[in-house]
Nucleic acid binder design. Structure first.
Length: 174
DNA sequence: GCAGTGATACAA
DNA sequence: TGTATCACTGCG
């Protein structure tokens, strides 16, 4: 029995949402016939404007605008001209928190997830509570996870690049 | 180890 | 207008 997560799940502080999001299921409906499910195995937190690794550290721009809306929206952006990365906005309006989905079951790597889920700029700002093509479900599975530093954030300075903001599911629990 | 790739942000 | 940068991947 799988239940779609409502907006209030994402409105909590990012630290709470992140540890509850590990093991949840991303559902991507491609058309009437095709609907695929992916259990989240790895995520990273970007905790707000003060986080020097976050796009929001540069303030509000056209690209980061959706990070400033309240939780439950999708933030996608194109990186290196090739890959659409999937993020989920959390917290209250103007907190600028977002969680990068770095791995799901069967797909390792944020760029590959974007390819597999056929993401593009039209997903920018998509509402996870009401969308008919992408949402998140809870099937009740509880997962343990391990903490690690984030990847490719060398530019963020000693304090922020070393934060244990990457959550990885324990393989044994899958 | 590093090329490929193009939108974005900011300087000018 | 130009250009430096980039929350990555795949092929050496």
């Amino acid at each position: 029995m799988s239940v779609r997560l409502k907006r209030d799940f994402f409105l909590k502080d990012i630290h709470i949402v992140a540890h509850q999001l590990v093991g949840k299921i991303i559902v991507r409906k491609f058309d009437a016939m095709k609907e695929e499910r992916f259990r989240i195995t790895e995520i990273e937190m970007y905790v707000g404007e003060m986080d020097l690794a976050s796009h929001a550290s540069k303030g509000r721009t056209k690209r980061t605008e959706v990070m400033y809306s309240c939780g439950g929206c999708v933030y996608v952006y194109l990186i290196y001209g090739m890959y659409w990365l999937l993020n989920i906005v959390t917290g209250k309006k103007d907190q600028a928190q977002a969680i990068l989905v770095r791995g799901v079951e069967g797909i390792d790597g944020p760029g590959r997830i974007g390819q597999q889920l056929k993401l593009d700029k039209s997903f920018y700002g998509e509402n996870l509570e009401s969308s008919n093509r992408i949402w998140v479900e809870d099937d009740g599975m509880l997962c343990n996870y391990t903490l690690h530093p984030r990847i490719n954030v060398e530019y963020a300075g000693d304090i922020w690049k070393n934060k244990l903001y990457r959550y990885k599911i324990e393989k044994a629990k899958l």
